[in-house]
Amino acid sequence: MVSLADYGDYVTAWCPGCGNHAILKAMKHALVSLELAPQQVLFVSGIGQAAKAPHYLNANVFNGLHGRSLPVATGAKLCNTDLKVIVESGDGCVYGEGGNHFLAAIRRNIDLTLIVHNNQVYGLTKGQASPTSEPGFVTKNQPDGVFSLPFNPVEVAIAMNAGFVARGFSGKTEHLSGLIQAAVAHTGFSLVDILQPCVSFNKVNTFGWYNQRCYILSEDYDPTDRQAAFLKASEWGDGIPLGILYKNKRPAYEDHFPFVRRGPAATRALNVPRLAKVLDSYR
């Protein structure tokens, strides 16, 4: 039996009132519900406030570079498919610095879960605009407001036929925990974009702002209908839909490598007779 205690209880460096606390809680609950023990899970994160999250629970952790968590996770998963791999980082890290990896991970459909703490701002570097900041968003570094249009991650993911696309809100913690569970249980790439208030640097998209707009998709919403999903995903403003927006059954990337599911790469010994044959072919 896995219990919440297995995942520990750590003092964080986050601001009181930050949405990250609730995301951490939702994550631990999801892992416990899935009966996953800490040693079965690998968290890979980048750099940012969100990227610190894996340090605040017990699990395997690779906390790498800003923007580069997805390729690290891809390499790790391909060399040990027994691991449940969860990538956790911020909107700037995943959609900005690491944008190309986001697209490539969706194309591959590698079996991992991407959790994005989307606070529409760069928290750690003290409040610059992020790729999801809305036009007109004023910061110390964008004193005239943001000019560019925001990146809509769920819309892009559905357009690219991602395996599993969901949006959650840190303020609806139990719902969020359910989404994380479903995402981790999904075979193939799964994205959970999580709206997360940053109390220190985003005074526009506050808890109240999100809470007023976010609604949970109704029971009869069909996440396998891609056209409908696309419409839902583009909804942003007075109403912001939460839930599993889209999913499909694309084969996971690992399936293309016949040998990777036969245990971790580290344990596969060199096949010397085959090597001899390979070398012989250069005669």
């Binding site: 570079l65 690290v72 971790p264 580290a266």
Partner: peptide
């Protein structure tokens, strides 16, 4: 991505 994948793979033992 190439080198980060290699680092991730190596971290997991390969």
């Amino acid at each position: 991505a190439a080198i980060n994948m290699a680092v991730g793979a190596s971290f997991s033992g390969a």
